[in-house]
Amino acid sequence: MSIIIDDSTKVVVQGITGGQGRFHTERLIEYGTNVVAGVTPGKGGEKVGEINVYDSFDEIPEKPTASIIFVPAPFARDAALEAIEFGLDPVVVITEHIPIHDSLEIVHRASKKNIVVIGPNTPGIISPGKCKMGVMPSHVFCPGTIGLISRSGTLTYEIVDDLSKAGMGQSTAIGLGGDPIVGLNFIDLLVRFERDPDTRGIVLIGEIGGSAEEEAAEFIKGHITKPVIAYIAGRAAPKGKTMGHAGAIISRGTGSARAKIEALSKANVRVAATPGEIPALLAEELA
């Protein structure tokens, strides 16, 4: 098993005719993701490879179940709200630089309709061997029993590569997104991994900014029985500076790596000092 997406997921690509949309649609199909349609308003009737492009969701003959969005930031709110309105679940928002007021409206609408939004500004989600809805390099992932939740893209690939090489494949790996407001938090996914019978261990990759890791630590204490290994990026980051991700900022006294590491340690979660340490720590916990 896996969480959120699997081999029954039927994907529509919103913004399929743009450079990123086109490139990654090919990668998704290569990976075996069932892409049933593309949507770009005004480009209905075109084709991207074998995939038909439509102006809107109503026109798609084979109904998708999930959407991945590559639409440029100024139009992403409209695209995401359309997907949510149409009941697609999950809605994976790859787009970076979406205004925070727009993201907040997207996330709010989705939670009212009980729909999972992943992102914005996320590498996406992958259930290795079954379905990929994201921009991650597929070759580093392999099927297995580790669930991975991360606030970062590249760092995830790095860590997954190490895990795969150490023989620890993944049930599902999810990027939460680098923005201050994103659809899912660690807790939403910890719950799902705890329930998933095929996930044996969990890797949590956090970074400076906000308090999602502290909240996760508090939650793990009472609710998570599976081993969790964490890594927190940004111990050397200064206060008040945005470190690449809009959400990675230590502000008004919250969000430091130290506070997160302390909270996790208190919850008996082992925190790796470097990304390279994670596989060994996880192997110990699983033994």
């Binding site: 606030r151 590249t154 680098g178 970074e207 990026a233 050397a236 980051a237 500076k241 470190m243 470097t274």
Partner: peptide, 23 residues
């Protein structure tokens, strides 16, 4: 490339007593 990886690079550099000049 990637904010998380660059932050991790800063952290590792510090761990080896290096002083980052930038992110």
């Amino acid at each position: 490339c990637g904010a998380g990886l660059v932050m991790a690079s800063l952290d590792i550099l510090k761990q080896f007593n290096g002083e980052p000049a930038n992110f």
